[in-house]
Amino acid sequence: MKVTIKDSQTLETIQPDIIQAHLEATGWRETGRIYNNAGAIWRFKNDPSNEYEILLPLQHNLGDYAERISDILKTLEIVEKRDQIDILSEFITNYSNFTVQGVVMQIATPETDKLRGEITLLGGVFEKLQEIKTTLANYDYILAVKAYQERLPICCTGDLVKKGNYFILDNPQNFQIGNLKSF
């Protein structure tokens, strides 16, 4: 099934430098800039008769930032023959106020002077299971231990930041046991 990303809030979280790095790494070349460096033109030729073009927005305040990121996902979907969701999950590096649903994979020993410690979750980030680390304290930490021991699903909201091959959930709030549907 083809999935098209239409959520402008999600599309606006994608940073141009992340896409630029991806294009450079996959054989695209920048051929010029338009509108006082508001955007860059990138091209890719996979055979002599077929050349693809991407308009990469370089300024977040552009009125069509989300639309142009959506165009890029559509073009890369064709060129790379993979889902937009798959490509999007590579491009997402931070996402504010994101709600993770998943399970607790690992509980670090709490700190010596307070009931607080690192928790590793396995949760869905744009349809892909990802490792997400966060730090919980007091009642939330105890809830996480219970969820871990009893293999219960959890959900938690925070600011998602990508670090290498895993994510960090900063400012975790509203940590709860159960799926979103059950609340």
């Binding site: 508001a38 955007g39 305040n61 069509d64 639309e67």
Partner: peptide, 11 residues
């Protein structure tokens, strides 16, 4: 307002 601001594809 949407038509007067900068856009990569002109409106």
């Amino acid at each position: 307002n949407d038509l007067r601001i900068n856009a990569l594809v002109p409106r």
